[in-house]
Simulated assay, not measured.
Amino acid sequence: MNHDKYILLIIIQFIVITGILFIDINDHVIGLFKGVLFILSFFVTFILLIIRLRSRTRLKRMAVEIKRVIIGNLKTRLLAKDDFLFDEIIFSINELIEQLEKVQIQSIKSQVARKSLLSSISHDIRTPLTSIIGYIDALQDDMATSETEKQEYLRILSKKADNLKELIEEIFDMAKLDADEIPLKEESLDLAEIAREALIEFLPELKNEHMELHISIPEKNCYVIADRLSLIRIIHNIIKNALEYGKDGKILGIELIEKANEYQLLIWDQGPGISKKDLEFVFERMYRSDQSRSPFSSGSGLGLAIAKALVEKNKGEIWVDSIPWVKTTFGFSIPRHN
């Protein structure tokens, strides 16, 4: 009855008015009953007026609170009372305010992350660019005393230019992933074959670094549903990261595991690994530990972030486990094609 008391009072008022009209028509009804009906009609009308005034006051209060939200006070919450319809509206408004607050918090975090990303990108572009300019100036000023030294300068210039080109390409790739502008062509693929194909590119570097290769990939077909280019890029980025930071361990391992609904590809090394405080951040953009920020590191800090984004776009998961100088494993899963 509380939910519809306004309608109920209107119905009672209608009945009272109808009774009064009936009394006027029927002279046999006593005058006392007529007076009672008049009093009841007045009482109901008075209650309706009070309810209307309270509703109006409550609506004004709601309007004030909503204006606070509009100007940015997202901590505002409307209070529910005992009116069912009002409470439904208030609950919906509060839920909307909560969603707006979450969006605002995420927007602030995104702005902070964007500023940090731009700062890191600026640093990582300026560093090799400054080095390139320095070597060019040295060559122009004939600071190289021999042909051998000149060739060494050119070799360093070429390497620095390649690193800069790779960084810019990865920045563009990350931007395309954010804008969802990289089309994925899902098809049935043999993950074992793709893993071997991606590994071939790194065999010369493995040989140069005197790294031992441990492979555990089934001979049978391991079919998954994914985008071919994405898989190659994911494996490429993870192997490159292992070679960059795990080469001191002198071992690179690749293992393909079959699960009920997915295949897992594990790529591991026995290098210095990743500290516990860094583990949760390794897939963030431009994040690198202090060790990897040495001038001898050529990593862009975007490779693992790109790998994570591509894995998720292919409906998989990616993770990392690390015990320094024992085993550091990057793994990802892809749904299998039954």
Rank of each mutant, 00 (worst) to 15 (best):
A175M: 05
R285L: 02
H28V: 15
L8E: 11
I225T: 13
S146N: 01
M62T: 14
A260W: 01
G273H: 04
I132S: 03
D87A: 04
R61K: 13
L191W: 04
F84R: 13
L266Q: 14
R293L: 10
H236I: 00
L100A: 10
Y245E: 01
I133W: 00
F330W: 10
A138T: 04
E98K: 03
R228I: 02
I23R: 05
L59R: 13
G316P: 10
S120D: 05
E205K: 15
R68A: 06
K159D: 10
L79C: 08
K159I: 09
R233N: 11
T45P: 11
D190H: 03
F202K: 02
I254D: 06
R114W: 10
F86T: 08
S188W: 07
A242G: 03
S333Q: 12
D87E: 01
L302E: 05
I17S: 11
A242C: 08
H214E: 13
Q106K: 08
S275K: 07
S92M: 09
Q99E: 12
I251A: 04
H28P: 05
A192P: 09
N241T: 03
F281S: 10
L203T: 11
S55E: 13
L302P: 14
S92N: 12
G31N: 09
H123R: 07
L279S: 01
L32N: 12
